[in-house]
Every structure is written in C-alpha cells, then in structure tokens.
C-alpha cells in the first residue's frame, strides 16, 4: 500500500505547462524554417477527379471480380467433368472381347517370369494339358531328332 502511495505521489510530481502538446505544433522551429509545402500536383489534377472516374473504377473492379470468379468456376467445372469421365463407369467401358482382341493382336507382352508367376507349377496339371498323342504329333511335325538330343545329354 505504502509503495503504491509513493508511486502516486511521484507520478503527480511531473507536470507540463497547460496546452503544451497543443502549442508544440505552432512554435515548433522546424515548421518556421522548413514549412510544410514540399509536394505539388500536376496542373488541374484536382479538377480531373470526378465521380465518374470513381464509378468507372468500381465498374472495372466488378468486371475483374466477375471475370476472375468465372475463370475459377470454369476451371473447377472442367476439373470435375474430367474427373468424372475418367473415374465413373470405367468397368463398363471395357468388356471381355476387347481384352481377348487386345491379347490376340500381340499387344500384351508377358515375360518368362510373368508367365511363371501366372502359372504356378503346383496349380497346373501338365498331363491334362499335353497328352501323349499331341506330343508324338509335335515330334513328327517338327522333325525332332531325338538321337541328337539324347547324345548331347
């Protein structure tokens, strides 16, 4: 409490002359020596400012605003349409015949490793796929020299 009282007393101890801050402007030496008019404007500048100029600016700003928002909206619609056409009903566009046609035209390439992965050995029964008659026909048609192969082995 005592400290607060002390501070109050000290604060009241400082005084300034009445109207000091208001008068500081008038007897200020800079103002007397330097003046305040340093800037000028082009001739008839203030006459050229009229309400039409301001209204034109408002109109231009509005057009700019509409244009900007129109382009933004158009871009958003375009992206939306692009997304929908690329992602919706994709499965209906490709049917089985197309896939077979694609494969038949040799446009589908499988490497040896791809094929081996596709036909995992434990899932295939070779005896069902190749019978003895087919094998014999294959040897006859290709003039397979069994002797040669057997010798090499």
């Amino acid at each position: 409490m005592g400290i607060k009282k002390d501070i109050l007393i000290k604060r009241k101890g400082f005084k300034i002359p009445e109207g000091y801050f208001e008068s500081i402007n008038n007897d200020f030496f800079i103002k007397k020596e330097l003046g305040v008019k340093r800037f000028s404007v082009p001739t008839n500048y203030f006459n050229s400012i009229d309400k039409q100029q301001v209204f034109n600016r408002i109109y231009t700003d509005n057009v700019k605003y509409i244009k900007t928002n129109f382009y933004r909206a158009a871009a958003a619609v375009f992206i939306g349409v692009l997304f929908l056409t690329n992602n919706l009903d994709k499965s209906n566009n490709v049917n089985l015949e197309d896939i077979i046609e694609y494969a038949n035209q040799d446009m589908l390439y499988f490497s040896n490793s791809d094929l081996s992965e596709l036909f995992a050995s434990n899932k295939l029964n070779y005896t069902v796929l190749i019978n003895d008659d087919d094998l014999a026909r294959y040897f006859i048609e290709t003039n397979f020299n069994t002797q040669e192969y057997l010798l090499q082995e």
Partner: peptide, 13 residues
C-alpha cells in the same frame, strides 16, 4: 517533378 522542397526539406522527408 512534383517535389518542390529544397535539400533541407528533402532531408526532413
């Protein structure tokens, strides 16, 4: 061209 002040006024600015 639209600044009319002298050197001291320029410094003040």
């Amino acid at each position: 061209p639209y600044f009319d002040g002298d050197m001291v006024q320029l410094e003040l600015q």
